[in-house]
């Protein structure tokens, strides 16, 4: 039933965009907790998109790691800091110009990349039915170096946090 899958795709894609928009520019509420909750919904809808691509592993990990852990930490921090309603700020001209320049630049790069890409060449073969084995092979063979570098980056961040938060002991 390709039509049904397409329908689901558009539903999830639309929801992702809607929730993403509500996360950053909610016209009804400027509450940081509301924004965080919409980010969670964005992540969940994106997981839906992954499921449609038969990337079950990725979908599950997306929810487990981002929605389940990272966002809970976000919420934890927001609540502990007791952030109030965000004031609607006046637009800063410098920020506006530089911000839109950045967005346009990013859009150009992304557009070119998308145009250059071959549509759906062999993506299906790699993540067929969420084969964790295939994913593991890619991660630990083809992209081992970036993976390890990322791990070291995280390690560095972790060490930094421990150093910063550790109490002075004499």
């Amino acid at each position: 039933m390709p039509a049904f899958t397409d329908l689901l795709f558009f539903a999830f894609a639309g929801l992702t965009l809607l929730f993403g928009f509500l996360c950053v520019a909610n016209p009804l509420s400027r509450n940081p907790v509301t924004s965080a909750m919409f980010l969670v919904l964005t992540i969940v809808s994106m997981a839906g998109l992954f499921v449609l691509l038969h990337a079950f592993f990725l979908a599950a990990v997306q929810i487990l790691v981002y929605a389940g852990a990272v966002m809970v930490l976000f919420l934890f921090v927001i609540m502990l800091l007791d952030l109030g309603e965000e004031e609607r700020r006046k637009l800063n001209r410098v920020a506006l110009v530089s911000g839109s320049a950045a967005v346009i630049g990013l859009a150009v790069v992304l557009g070119r990349a998308l145009l250059a890409a071959k549509p759906m060449a062999k993506a299906g073969a790699v993540a067929a039915d969420g084969d964790t084995g295939a994913l593991g092979r890619i991660l630990f063979q083809s992209y081992l170096l970036p993976f390890e570098i990322l791990s070291i980056l995280l390690l560095v961040a972790m060490v930094g946090v421990i150093l910063l938060s550790k109490k002075e002991s004499r």
Binding site: M37, V40, A47, F56, F57, A60, V61, I63, L64, A67, G68, A69, V72, L75
Partner: peptide
């Protein structure tokens, strides 16, 4: 993984 993902949402 599905179980863990769903359970992790319960905390919300």
């Amino acid at each position: 993984l599905y179980t863990f993902g769903i359970v992790s949402l319960g905390v919300y």
